[in-house]
């Protein structure tokens, strides 16, 4: 836990320094409107973007962006809004707010036989998962450096006999369903390498006081190939270390997505 704190403190300090140096710079924000979903940048008014696994995003105005995961929408209705509320030099601040109703999905997965991720004899309550996050992004020589602090709360209604789903990636994102809240902090960098090839890399920490597991830290690395202003292919890894109800666990998972903007 001490090492984790040290990593987070160092990451925050370097982020502060980097973004602080970007405040004095001027930048053309329109260059950073596409394929920047995890930054504080918002999409252009009227622009759409979607991925196989990434959410469908829409620029409602130049400062307000709406997004939703279409694949999940029928079983876990969800909506997220990102509002860019402050700019200074090459730095932008945004507020991210999201709402998900995961109950139908969790009830669907509470089944006998194959696909039963949750025990069928345990009642799943109505859950409203709310997520709020402050995001800051600085443009540093064409690279986007992002830091964010967020909080997930999930009020429950009705009888609950839910049990945790003790799987990397999933546990961290559902821990708030059993506890008071999950705090999320992340830093991320993305930018060009050469020609159409770029990268995206980040570190994300989850802390969920009161859960049987204690924390999860995830590192991501992706190579991105933007074949045109409209298409982007990204592939890489997600490395996760977490403490779960059964103990610590480290995983590396492959990631792949194709994104389309119009």
């Amino acid at each position: 836990m001490k090492r984790l704190r040290m990593v987070l403190v160092l990451a925050c300090a370097s982020l502060f320094f980097t973004i602080g140096s970007a405040v004095a710079q001027e930048t053309n924000y329109d260059e950073y409107r596409s394929f920047v979903s995890s930054t504080a940048m918002t999409m252009e008014h009227g622009q759409f973007e979607v991925g196989i696994f990434a959410p469908l995003r829409y620029g409602l105005t130049d400062k307000l962006e709406l997004s939703s995961h279409p694949l999940w929408f029928l079983v876990a209705p969800n909506l997220r809004a990102k509002y860019a509320f402050y700019r200074a030099g090459a730095v932008q601040l945004s507020w991210n707010s999201g709402l998900t109703y995961p109950t139908p999905l969790l009830r669907l997965l509470s089944m006998e036989g194959a696909g039963g991720v949750h025990p069928p004899d345990r009642a799943v309550p109505h859950i409203i998962s709310l997520f709020n996050e402050l995001v800051v992004t600085g443009v540093v020589e064409g690279h986007l450096v992002t830091g964010a602090l967020g909080l997930q709360v999930a009020p429950r209604f009705g009888e609950s006999q839910m049990v945790s789903i003790d799987v990397p990636v999933v546990y961290a994102r559902t821990a708030a369903f059993f506890t008071v809240a999950t705090a999320v902090a992340r830093v991320e960098v993305q930018g060009p390498i050469v020609g159409p090839i770029g990268y995206r890399s980040g570190l994300k920490g989850f802390i969920y006081p009161g859960a049987d597991g204690r924390f999860t830290i995830e590192g991501t690395g992706q190579l991105r190939w933007q074949s045109s202003p409209r298409w982007l292919v990204q592939a890489g890894y997600l490395a996760s270390y977490g403490e779960y109800p059964f103990g610590g666990d480290f995983r590396i998972l492959p990631t792949l997505d194709v994104l389309w903007a119009w």
């Binding site: 159409p196 090839i197 190579l223 190939w225 292919v233 592939a235 890489g236 890894y237 995983r251 590396i252 998972l253 492959p254 792949l256």
Partner: peptide
């Protein structure tokens, strides 16, 4: 073809690692 090669190599590495 370079990006395709890089991405394929990256995926192969991930599969070997997992």
């Amino acid at each position: 073809q370079i990006p395709v090669v890089i991405i394929t190599a990256l995926l192969a590495t991930v599969v070997v690692l997992t």
